[in-house]
Design a protein around this nucleic acid. Sequence first.
DNA 1: ATCGATGTTCGTCGATTATCGACGATAAGT
DNA 2: ACTTATCGTCGATAATCGACGAACATCGAT
Lengths: 118, 118
Amino acid sequence: MPRQLHHPDLKDTTLARVLSALGDPVRLRIIAVLADRGEHPREDFDLGVGPSTVSHHMKTLREAGLTYHRLEGTRCFVSLREDALQRFPAVVGSVLQAVEAAEAAEEAEEAEAPAPAS
Amino acid sequence: MPRQLHHPDLKDTTLARVLSALGDPVRLRIIAVLADRGEHPREDFDLGVGPSTVSHHMKTLREAGLTYHRLEGTRCFVSLREDALQRFPAVVGSVLQAVEAAEAAEEAEEAEAPAPAS
DNA sequence: ATCGATGTTCGTCGATTATCGACGATAAGT
DNA sequence: ACTTATCGTCGATAATCGACGAACATCGAT
């Protein structure tokens, strides 16, 4: 693991890139966890994909300017970049709100229709 | 040209799909024009790509549930789906706001630094 | 110095995406 | 009926993306 990870200058980010980074279910879940629980250890995300794939998604979010990755020993702690939330006012915020609403709706749906294909 | 174009039920849309559809510069421009000027004839978008490519992007937006396409004779009029704005509250709205802000900033930049490679 | 844990990078594979050119379908005007 | 205008669709191609496994780098502990 390199001793530092690259974090782009926010001036180099574009709206299209941010939205593209957010346009994936796995990355939306990462963002949702971060919004809900704040800084989070890298190994504690329960995504259904392999380690290198997680790295790929983490890099995508980081290079879009959305997350900050702090290395501490062999571990990595991820958090939302607060300055990114201000870069495109309300965009990330409204997405987070929509994610939470969607997840709540999903749970309600599962409670109604017991065990959908599981 | 088919006499009707397919518009998905909004219940079949996902947040990831919407964001993915918005995560492209060409499509963002389309959305910005629609937000600014309302229903717009298909042939009046000045995107720098070929006709079939425009079709592709239009289809992407339509299938994401973001736009409504009304056929009238040989022409096609595109507009934002108002119900989509309510599907994920504030998401599309904040994106539109960010697009306008970004375009305004671009113009200001060009005025400051005269003729950037043009 | 060696080992194990953690996480990134690289190479690869299949699927998707963006682009174009060519063709087909529909409608309006002559 | 013929012509033109407007689009959508199909086929092809190059690029990109998501996923995985293998290899590498760093840290902490033995």
